[in-house]
C-alpha cells in the first residue's frame, strides 16, 4: 500500500491546491466544516466536521436561474455553471455513505438533478478512515458503515497512526491522485489498527419492517413532545436533502434559487387547503420514518449514517438511537 506521513500532508495539500480547488476540514470559531484550503488554516483531522460536506454538492442556497420581465415579456437564463475540478479531501466513512444516499436522490428515479451532478462529476473525493469513535455520539458502525473503510469515494486513506495508507478506489482516483502525486507517496506494509469500541450502539435489524406497522403507534406522540421543531438536526444531517424553491425579486428582475428546507418546520407542508402534518408529532414521525423506513423502501438504504451530528447538537438531546431502541421494544397492538 502507498503511504504518506501525516506530518507531510500539508506539502501534498499545497501541491493539490495549486492545481485544483481543494476543500478540507477546517475548524475555528466554534465550528468545523469543509472549506477551501488556505495555508495556515486550522485543519481538523480528528473525526467528522460539525457541518457535513453535503453543501459541496448541494449548497444551502443555490441560484438556479435568473429572470427578467419587461411588461408582458419574460426571459430565463440558467445559472448552472460548469465547475472546475475540485478535490474534497478528508471526509469520513459516515459522510461517504451520506453522499451515496444523496446520489440516490439526485441522480436516480427518472430525473437527474444537473446542479448536483455537475458538482459531483467535477469532484474527486478523498476519504479518511476512523479507527474508533471520534466523538461519543458516533454510531456509524451500527448503521452498516465500516468506520475504517469508505465506499463511493475516489481515494481512501487508512489511518495507520503516523502515516496515512493511500488506496485508489476508482480509475479517477488512480490517475488524478495516486499517479499525479506519486512523488509524495512511499510504500508501507503497515496494517490498519484494530477498531476501538463505540460507546453508542444500536441494532437496526428489521427496523424498516417494524416501522411499517407503526405509523399509528402512540410512540410518536411520546417522542415528539420534547422536540422544539427547530431545524438543527436536519441542517447538520449529512443525508437530509429536502429543499425549497423560492425567488428573490427586485423590480423587473430576479432569480429563483433552491435552499435547504426542514421537515421539522411547520411551514414545510402547509398548503392553502391545510397542512397534512399539522403538529410536531406528524413532523417528527415523518423525519424518523423517512430515515428509517421510506428511504429504505424507495432506495434500499437507511437515510442515517450514524454520524451523530443531530444527537450532539439537538437542543433537547433528541436521540435517534434511543428512538430506534424504543421502536424495537414497542408493542404492536
Amino acid at each position: 500500500m502507498k503511504a504518506i506521513a501525516k506530518a507531510k500532508l500539508n506539502t501534498l495539500l499545497d501541491a493539490i491546491a495549486k492545481e485544483s480547488n481543494l476543500l478540507v476540514p477546517v475548524s475555528g470559531d466554534g465550528t468545523s466544516k469543509f472549506a477551501p484550503y488556505t495555508q495556515g488554516a486550522q485543519l481538523s483531522f480528528d473525526g467528522r466536521t460539525l457541518l457535513p460536506p453535503k453543501d459541496v454538492f448541494f449548497p444551502q442556497t443555490e441560484k438556479m436561474y435568473k429572470f427578467k420581465t419587461n411588461g408582458m415579456n419574460a426571459s430565463v437564463e440558467t445559472a448552472l455553471e460548469a465547475p472546475r475540478l475540485q478535490v474534497l479531501f478528508g471526509i469520513r466513512p459516515c459522510d461517504a455513505k451520506s453522499i451515496h444516499c444523496l446520489d440516490h436522490v439526485f441522480l436516480t428515479k427518472g430525473y437527474v438533478d444537473e446542479f448536483y451532478k455537475a458538482k459531483k462529476d467535477a469532484t474527486l473525493i478523498v476519504s479518511i478512515g476512523c479507527n474508533g469513535p471520534a466523538q461519543p455520539t458516533c454510531f456509524c458502525k451500527s448503521m452498516g458503515v465500516n468506520p475504517q473503510e469508505a465506499e463511493g469515494v475516489d481515494v481512501h486513506l487508512y489511518d495507520l497512526g503516523t502515516d496515512y495508507g493511500v488506496v485508489a478506489k476508482t480509475e479517477k482516483g488512480e490517475k488524478l491522485f495516486l499517479d499525479k502525486y506519486a512523488s509524495f507517496f512511499t510504500e508501507t506494509t503497515a496494517q490498519v489498527p484494530a477498531l476501538a469500541d463505540f460507546p453508542l450502539e444500536v441494532n437496526v435489524d428489521g427496523i424498516t419492517e417494524k416501522l411499517e406497522k407503526m405509523f399509528d403507534h402512540p410512540l410518536w406522540e411520546e417522542v415528539a413532545k420534547k422536540c422544539l421543531g427547530c431545524g438543527a438536526c436536519t441542517y447538520l444531517c449529512p443525508t437530509c436533502h429536502c429543499f425549497d424553491i423560492s425567488a428573490r425579486v427586485a423590480g423587473d428582475q430576479g432569480f429563483r434559487f433552491r435552499c435547504w428546507d426542514s421537515c421539522m418546520f411547520s411551514e414545510y407542508t402547509r398548503m392553502s387547503a391545510g397542512n397534512p402534518r399539522p403538529s410536531k408529532k406528524e413532523r417528527v414521525r415523518n423525519r424518523m420514518l423517512h430515515k428509517l423506513q421510506y428511504f429504505k423502501e424507495r432506495y434500499g438504504d437507511l437515510l442515517c449514517t450514524g454520524c451523530g451530528r443531530c444527537l450532539s447538537k439537538c437542543p433537547v438531546n433528541m436521540d435517534i438511537t434511543k428512538i430506534i431502541k424504543q421502536v424495537r421494544e414497542a408493542d404492536l397492538a
Partner: peptide, 23 residues
Amino acid sequence: EMRMKCGVGKCGRCNIGSCFVCL
C-alpha cells in the same frame, strides 16, 4: 394534492410514506 416544489421527487415535501405525489 400536496405542496410541491421540485416536481421530480427530490425536494421531499409531497411524500406520502415512500411515495412522492409529484412523481
